[in-house]
Design a protein around this nucleic acid. Sequence first.
DNA 1: TCTGGGGTCCTAGGACCC
DNA 2: TCTGGGGTCCTAGGACCC
Length: 437
Amino acid sequence: MYVLADCNNFFVSCERVFRPDLEGRPVVVLSGNDGCVVSRSNEAKALGIKMGVPLFKIRDLVSKEGVVCFSSNFELYGDLSARVMRTLARFADRIEQYSIDEAFLSFDDAVYPAEMLKTLSEHIVSEIRYGIGIPISLGIAPSRTLAKIASKYAKRYAGYHGACLIDTDDKRRKALADFAIDDVWGIGRRSVKKLYAAGIHTALDLADADSDLALNMMHKPGLQTWQELNGQDVCRIDELVQHLTITRSRTFAKAITTLPAMEAYVADFLSACANKLRRQGSYCSDIILFALPSRFMDNPGAEQFYAADVDIFHNTGGIYTNIHLAVPTNVTAELLEHVLKVLRGSFVDGYPYKRAGVILTGITDASTFQTQLFDERDRNRDNLLQSTIDKLNSRHGKNTIRLATQLKTDEDKAKLHNEYLSPCYSTRLTDIITVKC
DNA sequence: TCTGGGGTCCTAGGACCC
DNA sequence: TCTGGGGTCCTAGGACCC
């Protein structure tokens, strides 16, 4: 059996851990530059605030209803997430972290009868609620897709005490009959339209349909969803450690128009990517660099460059390049050399670059590393220098040693528009909570 | 004024091989 | 007039996830 553990309104719940006064009040967490709503408390949902809505569109509602806003604080969320994951791992035979706030636990059926899992799950819910402060919902079922559905019911009805079990065919059919097709894991917007046209509106409609219908409309992933809704376990994710791509990108509050400013951001993105790459013990052979204008046609700064109905990359002067390296590497300075060369060659001064980023691909692990015959670099020296820098940074804090091109931390903060940022209560001594007696 | 960021998997089609 | 069959690898784009 699988247990899906899904934290409730995770980012908002993290903020509330250190602000218990916000229980019962409408709270939202915003994306970078305080752009869109990315997490909502139940009270905020009840006010009709939709996921992804831009803040400027709900300003009136926010002030009228006293909605509390937070900028996103990933240092805080990452730390609380790690605590939740460690706690979950203590209970399960196997754990697969699926996202920052979700994990699949798997249990051996021979050891854990369904009813025992239900009791255990309720125990996990209260352990995480009272030990860490995060409300969480658990769904128990024989397949991952059904476990996801069960977790939604656990969230919906308080009577389940945070854990819902779908273990019999009768329960499965009842649960699916009351579950909208567009809420099923793996069924996106595109597929929903086609399914509606075929008269399929609930998860049960799909499960009871012919498997060929699922296959023809939604190809292989659709067939897997069909199987999972019918209780078959189709393994789709595993205990994946290595990422196949590593990305850092940002939309800027104000477009970047000068090369030195862009170089600083790109160097920062690349440095963060390379760090992650080394932490997972990999090398990469390709870097994608992009710097693009605004996605929105009505953005006045970008308008003159925007031609309707044409590919934004090719016709507006935006940058989107794939840089292939002859020898895979994970050394920040070396990666940056390549990227800066391309950036300097393609950057157009005065052009309004609104978002930019770096993607590492062609990722391989250390054991498959291949040297090249005509390699001029002294790789031993590079690696020694890099590991020394990494050690210093891990001892004295992120970016203690950084490349000259990178942003200075204070400047970076000034440029970021994060009006409602909370302290990093659990990861920085300077931000530690004070209790007055 | 103001519109997120980081991922995965699958498929079709082109280039190339013998 | 008539132009194989089987395979691999790579890439761009689509769809989906939180």
